[in-house]
Amino acid sequence: MNAQEIISSGILELYCTGLTSAVENAEVEQWVKQYPEVAAEIAAIQAGLEEYAQSHAIAPAPSVKEKLFAEINKTAASPVVNMNPSGSGTAKVYSIFTSLEVCGGSKYYFTVG
């Protein structure tokens, strides 16, 4: 298939809405490397869907953000709950987190490393 045939086949829309199989995903990702037009089309589809999702936005309670930052700082050596950090010590935290990556059975998480 050439780029135009790929684009008009509808497979890219399925890919962007999570309806393609692992085999098809690999195929699409190969086309992305091969054809700039396919990459551009995917970017446009995803941008459209992103705006669609943003139009359905519901702001969470402010407490969620506080709890989130408390959570991600929990495993650090000296816990700092800081929403606007200067960035000190982030490298250390990073190594701890990479070793702690545990994720429930989703196909999207296995590429860690």
Binding site: C16, E29, V32, K33, I42, A43, Q46, A47, L49, E50, A53, I72, F97, T98, L100, E101, C103, Y108, Y109, F110, T111, V112, G113
Partner: peptide, 16 residues
């Protein structure tokens, strides 16, 4: 946050 290293820009937008 924990899995950010597995995000691959080649696969599409961050939000996706």
């Amino acid at each position: 946050w924990n899995n950010f290293s597995s995000y691959d820009t080649a696969k599409g937008r961050l939000f996706t």
